[in-house]
Simulated assay, not measured.
Amino acid sequence: MYCLLVTLFVVIFAVYKLFEHQRGKTMIENTNNRHVLITGCDSGFGNELARLLDKRGVPVFAACLKEKGAAELKKHTSSRLRVLQLDVTDQNSIHDSVEFVKRHLPKCSGLWGLVNNAGLQILEAPLEFHSSEAIQKCISVNLLGSIDVTKSFLPLLRKTRGRLVFVSSDSAIIEWPCRAPYVISKVGLEAIAECLRRELYHVGVTSHTIQPGSFKTKIVDPNEMKSTLQRAFDNVDEEVQQYYGQQWLSKLKESFSEIPGIQYEDLSPVTNAMYHALFSVMPKRRYRCGMDCEYYYYPVSLLPEWFNTWYWKMSPPPDSVTRVDNQVIKNH
């Protein structure tokens, strides 16, 4: 009897997954009247998605932080795409963007999609290297900004039973050492996406997350990362500097130089996932983008926690364990 129930469960699950896969291939028609707002369009995923949607006839509101990014995007898109400036950490800026979108939407219509893409990573270093201001800025842009933008545009999304898309990261799968504020912001983003999935179920607004692996965008610049790390090291207490030391600092800087070699230059796996989340008849709850994210980080994350702690541990400073042990003995 037990074997029969297990077999029945497996068959039902397989049939459902096949149905889900086939339905996922079916895309919504008439996308030329479904307006989409994308944040963080100055460069990277947001910029690429704005161009992709514009080419496919989707009316886009492309939110850029800087005038330079907005001007550059206008050069490569049609007059159908509307560019606006938006600082996701500024309530006045968010309010102005809502009014801008309302003015340019057809009368009595709403917003079909909101892609919360704006994000940054200020510093890759142990937590004690991060200033309070740096931590706050990272969380404000990546997490709180997305929450505030989403709250402000929800009335327009409810009108269309539209789609919410949150650009997360492989940092929501692996709690990388030296990226604590960034990890916190992305794990929080996944959480808010799931909360909204449940809160908005009754009105038909769906929520989806995108988890890119190692893709080449301006958020990760090895040279900038090295200089930022050096400034952070110079500003911490002397005790912290002595604990880590110059040798450890140089080794971490060298590791940044290896990043371009593992990054995907083709951003289409991410933008295609975003497009699917916006316009598939049966979009996925979560999209893992990149071979590393799908077939390496995620499977490893399912292994026992003690293994993950050991496997992803930070390289310790030279003789740090011995020095700490000696200090403990001395204090006692």
Rank of each mutant, 00 (worst) to 15 (best):
V165A: 03
V165K: 03
F166T: 07
F166A: 08
V167D: 03
V167S: 04
S168W: 07
S168G: 07
S168K: 10
S168Q: 10
S168P: 04
S168L: 09
S169I: 01
S169P: 00
D170Y: 15
D170P: 13
S171R: 06
S171V: 00
A172S: 13
A172V: 03
A172Y: 06
A172W: 02
A172L: 03
I173V: 13
I173M: 11
I173P: 06
I173F: 09
I173T: 13
I174T: 07
E175Y: 11
E175A: 15
E175C: 15
E175F: 13
E175P: 09
W176T: 08
W176H: 05
W176D: 08
W176Y: 05
W176N: 10
P177W: 07
P177R: 09
C178P: 07
C178N: 15
R179I: 14
R179K: 14
R179P: 15
R179F: 14
A180P: 09
A180D: 09
A180H: 06
A180C: 11
A180L: 12
A180Q: 10
A180M: 10
A180G: 12
P181V: 02
V183L: 10
V183K: 08
I184V: 14
I184E: 06
I184L: 13
S185E: 04
S185D: 05
S185K: 05
K186G: 06
K186P: 03
V187Q: 13
V187W: 09
V187F: 10
G188D: 05
G188I: 08
G188A: 04
G188P: 02
L189W: 00
E190Y: 06
E190P: 13
E190Q: 11
E190I: 07
A191K: 10
A191F: 08
I192C: 07
I192A: 05
I192S: 06
I192D: 10
I192G: 06
A193C: 08
A193R: 07
A193P: 08
A193G: 07
A193D: 02
E194W: 03
E194R: 07
C195P: 14
C195T: 11
C195R: 02
L196P: 03
L196V: 05
R197K: 11
R197D: 07
R197W: 00
R197I: 00
R198D: 03
R198S: 06
R198C: 04
E199Y: 02
E199M: 03
L200P: 02
L200S: 06
L200V: 02
Y201M: 13
Y201S: 11
Y201H: 11
Y201L: 14
Y201F: 13
H202L: 10
H202V: 03
V205C: 01
V205R: 02
V205W: 01
V205F: 01
T206K: 01
T206G: 01
T206F: 01
T206W: 00
T206A: 02
S207T: 15
S207P: 15
S207W: 15
S207I: 13
H208S: 13
H208W: 11
T209Y: 00
T209I: 00
T209S: 05
I210N: 10
I210R: 09
I210Y: 04
Q211H: 15
Q211M: 12
Q211K: 13
P212K: 03
P212A: 03
G213S: 12
G213K: 05
G213F: 08
S214Y: 12
S214N: 14
F215V: 15
F215C: 14
